[in-house]
């Protein structure tokens, strides 16, 4: 029973992180129509910045907010310096075919991931490092009983839920949120309505970068950070998006939690190596039986 509860809560806090990664991916997907493979590169970079600040004695929360800004700024830079110029060039002969036009920004994002990883390797000499969690990572005790979760699990789940609520309120209730939804759903009608879809798309990259950075900060105390330590999380987050339906925020979040549980139970009851097989099987299963995802709209799929 204890093992079961342990797996359940570990799954919940890992799932929360995957949900964040998936949320970041969906935000860019809905605006720009591409899977941003550089996302966890941005997160890794900002986690390194945070670890440097914390090592120099800065407060955790200062490091946290600096990391958010770094992740957001990297998002804006990728969109403005790489994706926008690529889109502009896509009318030329070589880039003329629609499939190439869609593939090239994705390949570019992989390239950016590589660049971020090697730059981080140069700056921080590729050393693994981490920082302590802001709250205790030992199991909570209530009245002498050891609970199946730690303070840090609660902290993680709390922050993630806060971000999810804030993001959905922003999208549903504010006028900028309406502009973002409109641009994602039909950019032509949005532009005819006077919405500056280009800036709105960049805003999507900014929010996505900040959200991904939080994910990076939340995994670091458990795993330490190295230039490619977040690659696996990106794959899991991507799978979560596919499960949920790439254009559904709620779906991708649920997908994230679902994968968190699956992975936690496999590592507890089975051997951790089977995680990859499980992820692969889930991905294939969804592709075969429900390619639009659990919550995605059938027409909304862009690839």
């Amino acid at each position: 029973m204890q093992t079961f509860l342990n797996a359940l809560f570990t799954g919940g806090s890992r799932g929360a992180i995957y949900a964040l990664v998936a949320l970041g991916l969906v935000l860019v997907w809905r605006g720009a129509g591409l899977i941003n493979f550089a996302q966890m590169g941005q997160a890794m970079f900002s986690a390194y910045v945070a670890s440097t600040l914390i090592a120099q004695g800065y407060n955790y929360w200062i490091a946290f907010f600096v990391a958010l800004i770094v992740g957001a700024a990297l998002g804006a830079a990728i969109d403005i310096l790489v994706i926008r110029p690529l889109k502009k060039k896509s009318g030329t002969a070589i880039l003329g075919s629609p499939s190439m036009r869609d593939a090239i920004p994705v390949i570019a994002s992989l390239g950016i991931l590589g660049i971020l990883q090697s730059v981080a390797g140069m700056i921080w000499a590729g050393s693994e490092r981490g920082f302590p969690a802001p709250v205790s990572t030992v199991a909570l005790k209530v009245g002498g009983n050891t609970m199946p979760f730690t303070y840090f699990d609660l902290f993680t789940i709390g922050i993630v839920i806060l971000i999810l609520i804030a993001t959905s309120l922003f999208l549903a209730r504010t006028s900028v949120g309406l502009a973002m939804r409109a641009s994602a759903l039909n950019s032509e009608v949005a532009r005819l309505s006077g919405i500056r879809t280009r800036s709105i798309r960049t805003l999507g990259w900014v929010i996505s970068g900040a959200v991904a950075s939080v994910a990076g900060l939340l995994v670091t105390p458990a795993t330490n950070i190295s230039p490619n330590s977040l690659d696996l999380i990106l794959i899991i987050g991507f799978t979560a998006c596919v499960i949920g339906g790439l254009d559904s925020l709620l779906g991708s979040v649920i997908g994230g939690f679902l994968l968190g549980f699956v992975i936690a139970f496999i590592s507890v009851y089975d051997i951790p190596e089977d995680i990859f097989i499980a992820i692969f099987l889930i991905l294939m299963g969804i592709m075969f039986f429900r390619p639009q995802g659990l919550f995605g709209s059938e027409v909304g799929r862009r690839v």
Partner: peptide
Amino acid sequence: AQAPEGHSVIAELTVEENIRMGALF
């Protein structure tokens, strides 16, 4: 301002949101 061919509105947004959209700027 243009009301485009084929009664273009954004189907997934509400009627009010579609109208507000034109005035966001």
